[in-house]
Design a protein around this nucleic acid. Structure first.
Lengths: 178, 178
DNA sequence: CGTTAAACGGATACTTCATCCGCTTCACGA
DNA sequence: TCGTGAAGCGGATGAAGTATCCGTTTAACG
């Protein structure tokens, strides 16, 4: 990432500040531009596509997820580690509405996003392997399938009240058991 | 529903035939009109909103769901009845991409849709009550929460391959258990 | 300061949506 | 069979939103 000119850096931050408050699944570039006090062209130059903007918004949540996933992996009890990981993923996906799309997207435009995703999936693979070996999870579920199940739970929570998160996480964890 | 004039009935069927083949979450009226060989105005007259069209498409699936839910309720084993109901709901929602929206919508434009939904939810309430009484399901889950969980599973299956439906249904049913 | 490349803004052309109304077709009674 | 009016049809059209392009402005640096 070449150093940004000061005005460019300012524009970028203004745009991100506004975009954070918008519905991640319905980013309107013209509207964001007006709110941010910049021209539409400026928004499109910084973020050529809606997905590029979603990725930029996801970057900080993703960085938190890296930390949390390391912590989960450090947990000594295999079942607890799995629950910590899945619970954190669900929580963060609920907090950042664009995260699901970024996690599921096969090709990332931003290379730091790609690297963080790689680490998260690698860590999860380790945690899941441990859980499988100690027999606390169905052996036929893949990392990908569990990610999809987490996205499904995110969707379910969004349909109702956020306070159902705990219950739905319990349902998922019980369902994952061998 | 006042009797339709013959040309109106023909237009309606043509529109529904085309719409059935489209992505239910992205119904483009102009496109449907062109494909169906009718004017855009005709599409809008028959279906004032995308939701009205989605409802019409959901009607036949909903009618199948009424039958299946009665069958499930007739099942003597409480746990089996619950699984039959949830499994059928998941299956039908996967077959008809617009069904989720219609089931979740609080106000239906079509009265027959409203009536079918009423019966389905009433039947499910009975099935769930039985399951609760015989202790085969967590007592703290409401009909609404379970519907949301089914929608979540639908989402999860759609993210991957349809062949994961069975596995994901198993995960959900295991998670629902007390 | 002067220079230049980077960044900016917003007019504009383009796409898609949904309405409205003059024309056509159907149903029905004579 | 035909006349009549209500119902239905079509697509031109204005509104709304998207993404690009290029003349102007601004930052960075010697």
């Amino acid at each position: 990432m070449a150093a940004l000119r000061s005005d460019a850096a300012r524009s970028r931050e203004r745009i991100l500040d506004v975009a954070r408050r918008e519905d991640p699944s319905d980013l309107r570039f013209n509207h964001i531009a007006r709110e941010a006090g910049v021209g539409v062209g400026t928004v499109y130059r910084h973020f050529p596509t809606a997905h590029a903007l979603t990725e930029a918004l996801a970057a900080e949540t993703l960085s938190a997820m890296v930390t949390i996933s390391r912590d989960a992996a450090a947990e000594s009890d295999d079942a607890t580690a799995l629950r910590a990981f899945v619970g954190a993923a669900l929580q963060l996906q609920l907090e950042n509405g664009g995260l699901q799309a970024v996690l599921l997207s096969p090709d990332d435009e931003d290379s730091s996003v790609r690297e963080m995703k790689r680490e998260i999936f690698a860590t999860f693979t380790t945690v899941l392997d441990r859980a499988r070996r100690s027999g606390v999870v169905r052996p036929d579920l893949s990392v990908e399938q569990i990610e999809h199940l987490i996205c499904g739970m995110e969707h379910a929570v969004r349909l109702g009240s956020p306070e159902h998160r705990g219950t739905f996480l319990d349902v998922l964890m019980a369902g994952l058991r061998a």
